[in-house]
Design a protein around this nucleic acid. Sequence first.
DNA 1: GCAAAGCTCGACCGATCGGTCGGTTGGCAA
DNA 2: TTGCCAACCGACCGATCGGTCGAGCTTTGC
Lengths: 185, 185
Amino acid sequence: MSEIADTVGLRKSSLFHHFRTKAEMYAAVVNRILGEVELELTRSLAKGGTAVERLDRWVDALIDLMVRTPAHSRLMLRSLFEDDELSGALPEQREADERLERIILQARNVLRDGMAQGEIRAANIPHTIQSLIGITIYHFASGDLGNEIIGTSIFAPKEVERRKQEVKAFLHHGLVTNSATDEHR
Amino acid sequence: MSEIADTVGLRKSSLFHHFRTKAEMYAAVVNRILGEVELELTRSLAKGGTAVERLDRWVDALIDLMVRTPAHSRLMLRSLFEDDELSGALPEQREADERLERIILQARNVLRDGMAQGEIRAANIPHTIQSLIGITIYHFASGDLGNEIIGTSIFAPKEVERRKQEVKAFLHHGLVTNSATDEHR
DNA sequence: GCAAAGCTCGACCGATCGGTCGGTTGGCAA
DNA sequence: TTGCCAACCGACCGATCGGTCGAGCTTTGC
C-alpha cells in the first residue's frame, strides 16, 4: 500500500480514504480491468461474420488487451487462478465475477455457433475455452520464462504479431500435418 | 512457516534448522517437484516411436504429473510466471532453472524432429511450447474458475481423461474443420 | 560409556504489514 | 462570510512475518 501510494503521489493513509481495505482496492482494480476486457471482447464479436472469423477476431482482441498493459496479463492470470484469498462477498468482486461469467458465456456461444454451422470441429466446449485461456493469457503472463523460451521480449510488437498468427494457425490446423494418420489403434 | 511446521509436526524454529531461509525452502520444494517432472517427461520420450507418438505421451505424462498432486500444478504455474521474487542465486534455484531448461529443450527437440520428418506442421517452435504449457499446466492450475467452466472438478478422473483426449485432439486437428477455407484474403 | 553431532523447542527480536485516528487544508455552496 | 466536506496527512497501533539464540533431548560413532 505504501508503494502504491508513492507511485500515485499520495500517502498510505490517504488510500484508505478511497478504499476501505486493501482487498476492496484490489477487487476494484480487477473489476476495472475486466470491464475493459468485456467491452473489447464484446466489440470483437459484434462485428459479425462467420463463427471462425469472430473467433479469430476474439483472439486478436484478447491478445491486444494483454499487450496494451503488460502488467494486466499478470494480474488477470493471478486473479483467475488464485482462488480469492478472501473470497469476500465484496460488491466489486461479485461484479467482476459476473463480468467474467459473461465473457466466458460469449466465448461459449461462438464455439457453439461454429459447431452448429459445421465450421468448428465438435470439441468439448468448456475444455476448449480453458485451452483458449491457456494459450492467450498464460503466454503474456509468463514473464521471464516466456522471454527465455521465445528468445526476445514477448511484448515486442513483432513477436506479438507472430503470436497472433501462431495461435490462429494452431486453432485452424492443429499441429499434426496429416489428420488421417492418427485415428489408428 | 508456522503453518508448514504444524502440518509436518514441528515448530517453526525447527524448520530453520533444515532450511536457512524461507526462500531456500521454497526453492528446494520447487526443485524437487521439477525433478519428478523431468524424470517422468524424460521417460515418456525415451520409449521411442514417431515424433507425434512421443508428443502424445509427453502430454499424457505431463497431465498425469499435474494430477498426481493437485497442489503441484498451482506451484508449477506460480514458479513459472512469478519472476523469482528474490532472484537469489540460491543453488537450489539454479538447479531448478537448469532442470526447466532441459525439460524445454526436450520438448523443443521432439517438435523439431517431428517437423523434420514432416509429421508436424512447420510451426514456430518456441510459441508452440508456450502453447503446450498453457494448455496443460494452466488448466490444472485454474482452480475454482476451471471447475466452474468445466462444470465438475477438473481433477475428477473422468474429467482428467477427457482433458487428455481434448488436448491431443486439439494438437491433431486444431479447431476448424475445413483447413482449406481459411487461407483466403 | 561418553562425547560429539543432530534435532527440537520456547522465548524472543526487529521489521513490516494493513489499518486507525485526530487534525489540517482547500474549494465550494449558501 | 461562514459552514461544510472531501481529500490528505503524520503519528501511531496491534498483529504477523521471517528469523535468531541458547538450552535441552536424542541419536550416532568410537
